[in-house]
Design a protein around this nucleic acid. Structure first.
Lengths: 202, 202
DNA sequence: AACTACATCAATACTATTTCTTGACCCAGT
DNA sequence: ACTGGGTCAAGAAATAGTATTGATGTAGTT
């Protein structure tokens, strides 16, 4: 059971992430230590289930999760993948305190550090520096979201796929093609044919 | 998605269980119906994670779960299996509202009916008959726990195994040997040898 | 000193589940 | 009619999860 290894999370990756944006003093580090809680999600386990209010802001320490919407026809559309050193939450639901329409679940056993809504507010009050940190962090998310949107409305499936394996090279051979297809908005079969075509080229 | 089928749980097994102890009237049935919520846990998913307060009292409708403790060396020790028509919760954590040291997770896709701490208190108040029902139910659990303890301190691994497949015949060929070994407190290898020996006998 | 009741480690074998690919066929828009 | 897709079904391939076996070790009997 190597679950043990994964469980004794170090908070370091998160501190590192913050330090990288703005240096923290001792008290601030302590706050992070106190307010973020480690949690292990097993493969396939829900981190957020549609209908629930998203009450946690999640930082991925290791592993990989996906965020998706299930449409009326029952098809699932992946909005975002997140792996090491990324953030993921349904920000709308988190802030408005409204039920989410999205799901988040684990593609691998995944360790996250999570802060609850209340604790995040408390963090902002106790250390206003985090207002800035979280602003930057959300700006980053925003930018990559915008990029993804643009990609999506402007390119063919093949182009999107190529661009995906470029931007997400670390994920490309880590997550199933099915998931990638769902992210790209095509069927797994069609993705398979695209890949086949690619390998024939080289 | 045959998840649908499993999701539309009938509350009947639970009502049946209660009726079997003490007949319920209409209002009491309605209370059960209102206060117990169905929930599906997928294989490997946590029902309770150590560190969290156990807030649900679980009745297994179908499937199978295990409750275990992970020791300092990282070894996991299975305290209890539970399948159809059994109850499982960390009763200590549930009542004292303290973080649990135990984990519960699903060995199969498992449907449970669960009642929250608050709702259980409310149930006791609205229908005191449930005080008795839950007393009986916990007495039953207590007895089987005691039996297991006795078994454990008084028998060899082989005897324990034999006794296990007798008492849990319905589980013996349903859950992995590894899990059974962990329940018996021996290594999977040794269990394998014991089994080998048994089959040679017959 | 030998025997019993276990443990550990490493390798192998086996099984089940998940993922990927392919073929056959369809359809809508240039 | 060609291209960029989609659907369904079947098989193949890959991976993960389980079980077994051999070699070796150890603590506590006898």
């Amino acid at each position: 059971m190597n679950e043990e290894k994964i469980i004794q999370t170090q908070i370091e990756p998160l501190l590192g992430y913050f330090q990288n944006l703005i240096p923290l003093n001792k008290e601030e580090k302590q706050l992070v230590f106190d307010l973020f809680k480690p949690r292990l999600y097993r493969k396939r386990q829900y981190v957020l289930q549609s209908g629930d209010v998203c009450n946690q802001f999640n930082f991925i320490v290791r592993g990989c999760v996906r965020m998706y919407k299930v449409d009326d026809k029952g098809n699932t559309h992946i909005i975002q993948f997140a792996s090491e050193n990324w953030w993921l939450s349904d920000i709308g639901s988190f802030h408005e305190r409204t039920p989410s329409e999205l799901n988040i679940d684990a593609l691998e056993d995944t360790m996250v550090l999570q802060i609850s809504h209340d604790n995040l507010l408390s963090l902002y009050i106790q250390a206003p520096k985090f207002d800035r940190i979280f602003r930057v962090l959300i700006e980053n998310s925003f930018v990559s979201l915008q990029k993804r949107l643009l990609q999506n409305i402007s390119s063919s499936a093949e182009e999107r796929y190529l661009s995906f394996i470029e931007s997400y090279s670390h994920l490309a051979n880590r997550i199933p093609q099915t998931q990638i297809a769902s992210f790209l908005g095509i069927t797994p079969e069609f993705l398979s044919r695209l890949r086949n075509k690619q390998t024939k080229k080289s």
